[in-house]
Design a protein around this nucleic acid. Sequence first.
DNA 1: TGCTAAATCTCGAAC
DNA 2: GTTCGAGGTTTAGCA
Lengths: 265, 265
Amino acid sequence: MGESSFNCIHMPSFGEAEVVLRDGIERRRMVVIVGSCVINYHGRASSTLTRGERLVIVKPDGSIQIHRPWDVSPVNWQPPGCIFHVDVVDDGLRLRAVRIKPREVVDVIFDKITILVCCTLVDEGDFSLYASELDMQKAIIAYPNIIEDGLKIISFERHVDPGFIDLYGLDSKGRLVILEIKRRVADKSAVLQLAKYVNEVKSRSPYREVRGILVAPGISKGVQSLLSSLGLEFKRLDPKRCSEILNKSSGSVDLKKFIQGSHRS
Amino acid sequence: MGESSFNCIHMPSFGEAEVVLRDGIERRRMVVIVGSCVINYHGRASSTLTRGERLVIVKPDGSIQIHRPWDVSPVNWQPPGCIFHVDVVDDGLRLRAVRIKPREVVDVIFDKITILVCCTLVDEGDFSLYASELDMQKAIIAYPNIIEDGLKIISFERHVDPGFIDLYGLDSKGRLVILEIKRRVADKSAVLQLAKYVNEVKSRSPYREVRGILVAPGISKGVQSLLSSLGLEFKRLDPKRCSEILNKSSGSVDLKKFIQGSHRS
DNA sequence: TGCTAAATCTCGAAC
DNA sequence: GTTCGAGGTTTAGCA
């Protein structure tokens, strides 16, 4: 914040650019270059790109990407951890990014540099992607039939001793149903979590039948047999489908309203 | 080339930035912004990113991507064809990218703009990627002996019910040969794919012997036993060697001509 | 570190 | 426009 954290040079000579670029990379700053270049790649595959104007980005983590004026993904790139070499060669400036394992090399040879920007990006922001588990809950609450016909949801995030049951309901035959929801492929731990809740509920309601259903887009290998041995079930449900269902749903699912209903029980 | 094809403003006011950014987008130029921002995304999933300094790129094709100081892939993005809205809001500048189908919105709200660059990138370069699966096909077609002596290729990309057989041929003893080609280490899925094709062909030609060969630079652990149990074979072939073979080959392999031959069968 | 599975995958081609 | 399959996939989660 205090010191100047960026510099920017226009139409530099290759000598100037060499100094600034090398310095920017060494000091682990973000480097952005617009210029005319050719690109060669050799590694798992090989590629060439003849001359044209592109945007080149070198990040502090040692990754590089070369962008053409179209498409989201770069035409060439190198993942974090590269070793860079900057050299003036044959009336041009060569930026070489070397990946050690697997051995891969990307060469960017500039014949013209329009602009070169080096800057320090301070980014302590928190990123959160909340695609799903909540959306999956909402979708099931709004349309319990996506789990099975006749299912009725009684409450959600219901507290029991080991934690919180995602969804709690009754099936068409009046049996208690405990739903454990995962937004990704469920592993063994998810099954054990569900088993704990089921056992807890069974111990409190010894004369009722209690079903436990693991709801997820898929299950890891071996999980099906574990489920079977514990008398639990699996219902495949795609988080994306839940989003779609919610988007199509005319009004938003009102969890607050639902909470009141659930408090009755 | 003739007219100045870029402009660059440092630490602009939101009003200035609004004008330049909107103009740059409308004129379909490449726009690069370094600044402090928060980002919200709603669509197939949802995400939030709290304040921090990032690099934002808007391309002439109507795509946008937001880069943090690490990782090759952007933290948020929107594919080509977006509709953009630029507005000054609450002491900030909001850049909104809307995708119509599926409905998705990315909002970038800047509280500080360090630098804003608009430029026209002229890029008519040709990109070519070598040592692809196609190259392996071509090399095998040109020199079937690299698989085994006496092999004759009958057709390629032949359609059968589950999909397309990479290469289809006859061995020295007149048996049908199905080749599944992978340019990388082949895993279980490649074997199952090959098995499907072999079974399909066997069911159509119940009185012919049918061999299935997986062609790849290597196979994952455990794949050999799966191959054996299914009565399939593995032939090691390096994609790079295929490139070399093709490069040494005097003329290019004429697939069109080959297609005519394959139509006979 | 190496492998397996998911991704707002991206991207291109076929239908 | 939608679906299907491949990718220098990339990325995340485990063994």
